[in-house]
């Protein structure tokens, strides 16, 4: 395999390219919305915030929305799957969320290919921007080896002041790049320069020493006092899960129109931290306490699903830490169990 060629583009050209792509794609980027910064649809590149600030929700919502209709039906029994996907460009997605996309891509394709999620992914172009420093005090991407994107992007941009170094990861990314961005050949030293800046920004911020062994360590620490300590404060409010870029549990519900003649089946985000999550129709609740639910959630991140995906399923974005009023943090739990 030949080494990928190094390309350079100016930030100006990227923004211009996005404006041109707007006729074919809906463009999503980090943008200001009242008091907050969120990933949202934009009409012009003027609305883009290039400097990253943590958002409440990750870009997950564009591929796996909070609510979506999966079936339409009539009471006579005509049933049609509803799979809605549009051409999307997600611009400026950061490594934590890119790793989140990679994990969701695997989760939604594993064993059975989820048509709704995968259709949206097929029609999307994800343009990442690498981080050169940790975004705030709650983020701990570097602890879980997630401050670099392991996948989830079509095009990756590395910041070089008024320019970006470009790395292309997919054929659809290549096509998009050729069509919309003006590039010039770059030198290996350009990429090195960008990466050196990143190294400087993350200096002294090391991953968990035994990160690779987390599944094993968590498996052995099922009775660790941390579960009770942290679980007793948990409100079971589900906030941590709503904001998590790698949580993908859902609920399914039917809703008939008021005239009871036709209806829809919907799925919506659900959360294993909510008290009724594991309750069966007969009333038995297989995870009745907040302690058990917290344990399960963290085991998904650092134990079972980590073993399956080959990377920590907590990407260290810090969203749940910011959202938790009871100050429960996967980082703190991992530190208590595995050491810093």
């Amino acid at each position: 395999m030949t080494k990928p060629e190094i390309l350079i583009t100016t930030k100006k050209s990227i923004l211009k390219g996005l404006d041109q792509a707007h006729s074919t794609y809906r463009i999503i980027a980090l943008t200001r919305n009242q008091e907050r910064v969120i990933y949202d649809y934009i009409n012009s590149s003027d609305e883009i915030e290039l400097e990253y600030q943590p958002t409440v929700l990750s870009v997950k919502k564009f591929f796996f929305p909070q609510d979506e209709i999966i079936l339409d039906y009539t009471v006579e029994g005509k049933v049609t799957p509803r799979i809605e996907a549009e051409n999307l460009v997600l611009f400026g997605v950061r490594p934590c969320d890119l790793n989140g996309i990679k994990i969701l891509d695997e989760a939604f394709a594993e064993s059975h290919g989820d048509p709704n999620y995968l259709s949206r992914r097929e029609k999307s172009i994800v343009i990442g921007i690498d981080c050169q420093k940790v975004c705030d005090k709650d983020a701990f991407c570097y602890k879980v080896d997630s401050n670099e994107a392991k996948g989830g992007f079509d095009i990756m941009l590395y910041d070089l002041e008024d320019r970006y170094v470009i790395q292309v990861a997919s054929a659809k990314g290549q096509k998009f790049l050729e069509r919309y961005f003006e590039t010039t050949p770059g030198l290996p030293s350009d990429l090195e320069k960008a990466l050196a800046k990143k190294k400087e920004g993350f200096k002294g911020l090391e991953p968990f020493k035994n990160l690779e062994k987390f599944p094993e360590i968590f498996e052995k620490n099922k009775d660790h006092p941390v579960w009770e300590e942290e679980g007793s404060r948990c409100l079971s409010c589900g906030s941590c899960i709503m904001v998590c870029p790698t949580c993908y549990c859902f609920d399914v519900a039917d809703e008939l129109a008021l005239n009871l003649k036709k209806g829809q089946r919907m799925r919506r985000w659900d959360a294993c931290m909510l008290s009724a999550f594991a309750e069966v129709a007969g009333g038995e609740n297989f995870r009745p306490t907040a302690k058990e639910r917290l344990h399960h959630r963290i085991d998904r991140k650092f134990n079972f699903l980590m073993a399956k995906h080959g990377q920590a399923v907590c990407v260290g974005c810090g969203r749940c830490v910011r959202a938790c009023l009871a100050d429960i943090s996967p980082k703190v739990i991992a530190e208590k169990i595995t050491g810093k």
């Binding site: 999966i70 079936l71 049933v79 049609t80 799957p81 799979i83 695997e106 394709a109 594993e110 064993s111 059975h112 290919g113 989820d114 048509p115 995968l118 259709s119 097929e122 089946r265 073993a307 399956k308 995906h309 080959g310």
Partner: peptide, 16 residues
Amino acid sequence: MMQLDLQPKDEKLYLP
């Protein structure tokens, strides 16, 4: 690491 069994999308996955 376990081998993930990745499948293409199944348009009828949720169609009863």
